[in-house]
Amino acid sequence: MIPAPVEYTRAGSAEEAISLLTEHGDEAKLLAGGHSLLPMMKLRLATPAQLIDVGRLDELRYINADNGEVAIGALTRHTELEHSDVLADACPLLKHVASLVGDPSVRHRGTLGGTLAHADPASDLPAAVLALGGTLVAQGPNGRREIAATDFFASYFESVLAADELLVEVRVPSGGGGWNYQKFNRRAQDWAIVGVAVADGGKGIALVNMGATPLRATAVEAALAGGASAAEAAAVAAEGTSPVEDGNADATYRKHLARVLTERALNAAG
């Protein structure tokens, strides 16, 4: 499968990428690692007229821990998260979840900013950033703005980024209590049928593939805060969710998985 004809420009800086976005508007798509966008273009699910390649913007490829938080450049690749000594100390959840995305060759190309902006509710890293209570930094023609991860995801494959904005940085708190990630799938390298990310000893819990966006399991968080046990809290994990039905699972089974995986994740997180 070959994508439909498209124009291609490689941006030399974040500013150039934003100016190209401003020029081309809705006709343009940003290309980072391309491992979500190119498959969609091959299937004609996406038919942008203009690609703006930001994949070589090394200025947006870094992992820095400072002042109680970790700042990660949006174009940092999954493989760099997976092998990061900084994350091993400061945010092991993110390092671990990155190591479970796709397969090694996919992780050599895919980027943190790309997977967040793609906003697939079945992806691993968006839920991890959501559980961590991360902050996303978007840059547009008028400068930068910060968006809480809880406000970032709008719907299936939709974020609140404006058409002329580039995601430039992701910040997550460093340290924190116990963490765990449960990813349930039937084939290696597949997306999660359901996943659960637990951060900071249960203060942040997010669900993968349980609705139109990655979801905070607010009922579970509230139950834990009120003194419930892991088993009691996990029993409400499916509250407020609206999972898809597909060839892998119906909604009832996904809700069952959410409860079971949440209990496992909470127990493992300690």
């Binding site: 490689r10 391309g34 060759s105 050599h108 190309r109």
Partner: peptide, 16 residues
């Protein structure tokens, strides 16, 4: 291998 790392060449544009 692209720049020494394995990549899936069906999911990369030549121009990238």
């Amino acid at each position: 291998h692209f720049e020494g790392q394995s990549v899936k060449s069906c999911t990369m544009l030549a121009v990238q």
